[in-house]
Amino acid sequence: MTDALWYFARGSGVVSLLLLTVVVALGIGSRSGRPAFGLPRFAVSLLHRNAALLAIVFLVGHVLSLLFDPYAQLRLLDTVLPFAGHYRPVWQGLGTLGFDLLVALVGTSLLRHRLGARVWRTVHWLAYLCWPVALLHGLGTGTDNGTWWLWAISIACVVVVVAALAWRISPNFSRFPARADRAVAPRLRPHLEEVK
């Protein structure tokens, strides 16, 4: 039974990383305005959301299995507060941090109609922190670090995200490269002084 928990913890962690990689790539893809990966734009956006929700499910499984695993000795506090654990506190802490970030990202996204676009977008920039944290956590902690297959998976994930980022900054990323930027004209910015 304890072995099963341990295997599940490792497996669900790897699946979460794969899903998060897909989420990041689709998130970047949905920003383009082009039908990305052969999918229409709304499908890219829906898949991005659903993959993120699925990643949360696997991460909850990952954390729960470690809570009940006698070997990991994870305390409830460690699931929320990063870098306070006993077992490889830094690497495990990265996992906790990544989990916290993901909860913030998904939570604000689900509430974005209530929070407003500005708050949501600001928080969403954390995605670029969340993903590398998750990657490092996977590489540094656990039984599988140093195995060829975890390295292969990690490298594949990096390749996907780097490729998506390269596409993001390339000139043909936008569907309408000739489109003018929307920015408030400097002459209208606040410079007014109260005279009385």
């Binding site: 305005g33 734009r41 709304f42 569907r175 309408f176 489109r179 929307r182």
Partner: peptide, 12 residues
């Protein structure tokens, strides 16, 4: 003032 022409609505 918010629309960025991402094109999701025109598909849906």
């Amino acid at each position: 003032t918010a629309c960025d022409g991402r094109g999701v609505c025109t598909e849906l």
